[in-house]
């Protein structure tokens, strides 16, 4: 098989390959070789630094007590600076930790994108993974950087912590008049649900054609063998048309990216463009019932 030869050549070139048998059935058991490189190093270093600064902030909050750290971890939060600091640098205790941690987290994510890009090119692949990751990065940037800058306050960004992101999601929606009425949020949810259904359809289809070796997807795409044909026939029977082995992945990438990109646009448009999405819903005539709650 082509893939086996491909793997063998790697194994000959490196001695870092390991096999983790407990992954059998869940994933490929082969681990390694890992390429670190410049972007990988920057991403890893920045991420560790960001996590370390967050840990320092948490440590201060619990008085360096490890038991309290574990017990309170779900609610510990590194908050952004208060509004009075605007977009300025704040003292460490007043949000400076958050600013430094967010800076390195951003550097880490950008470096990771470059890593995905350069590794794809080096491997002779198109950089579609990096492009897809950019969609997620765009949403991150919209929430943590672009929206706060548009509102002239880092305080608009979420804190770092497990509960913090949930609280921010709630409070952001409360402040801006119910985010569910944000049309971009609606499109984002459409993308999310679309991604879910496409992923489920695709995954189930490939598993259904197991007996015809459809689980060896790469080979199939190259050879268009029996499993793929049967899967396509199945969908024509069920819904009258079918995706190709190529187009289904384009659909999946498109829907998944739409989720993040539409969400990002929705966040960016919030505040300076539309401060109250419920009132927008009223103006658009989509508030529920008889719009009794509309002013």
């Amino acid at each position: 098989m082509t893939t086996e030869v491909y793997r063998e050549s790697f194994e000959r070139r490196t001695k870092t390959v390991r096999y983790l048998r407990f992954l059998e059935g869940l994933a490929d058991t082969q681990v390694g070789p890992i390429f670190l490189g410049m972007w990988g190093t920057v991403a890893l270093f920045s991420y560790l630094l960001s996590a370390f600064i967050t840990a320092i902030g948490f440590g201060e909050q619990v008085g360096w007590n490890p038991i309290r750290l574990v017990r309170e971890l779900p609610v510990l939060t590194l908050y952004p600076p208060p509004p009075s600091y605007g977009l300025q640098l704040a003292p460490l205790q007043e949000g400076g930790y958050w600013q430094i941690a967010t800076f390195f987290l951003t550097v880490s994510l950008i470096a990771w994108t470059f890593r995905a890009w350069t590794r794809a090119v080096a491997n002779g692949l198109r950089p579609t993974v990096a492009i897809a990751f950019t969609a997620a990065l765009f949403l991150y940037a919209a929430i943590y950087i672009i929206h706060p800058i548009s509102m002239n306050s880092w305080n608009e960004a979420p804190g770092h912590g497990l509960a913090a992101i949930l609280l921010w999601t709630n409070h952001f929606s409360v402040k801006y008049g119910n985010f569910y009425y944000n049309p971009f949020h609606m499109v984002s949810i459409f993308g999310l649900l679309g991604s879910a259904v496409i992923l489920a359809m695709h995954g189930a289809t490939i598993l259904a054609t197991l007996a015809y070796n459809a689980h060896k997807e790469i080979d199939e795409i190259e050879k268009s063998d029996e499993g793929t044909h049967r899967a396509q026939l199945f969908w024509r029977w069920v819904m009258g048309f079918n995706a190709t082995a190529h187009s289904i992945h384009v659909w999946a990438l498109g829907f998944a990216s739409l989720t993040a990109v539409a969400g990002a646009i929705g966040v960016i448009a919030t505040g300076w463009l539309e401060p109250n999405w419920y009132l927008w819903g009223c103006r658009a005539g989509i508030a529920p019932g008889i719009q009794a709650a509309c002013p």
């Binding site: 305080n155 609280l167 921010w168 409360v174 402040k175 801006y176 109250n276």
Partner: peptide, 19 residues
């Protein structure tokens, strides 16, 4: 004044307090 309008000052602090 939790729910934003054009004049609402930036920041989520009031929202956190209110919540």
């Amino acid at each position: 004044q939790v729910t934003a309008s054009k004049d609402t000052p930036p920041g989520l602090v009031d929202t956190y307090r209110n919540q």
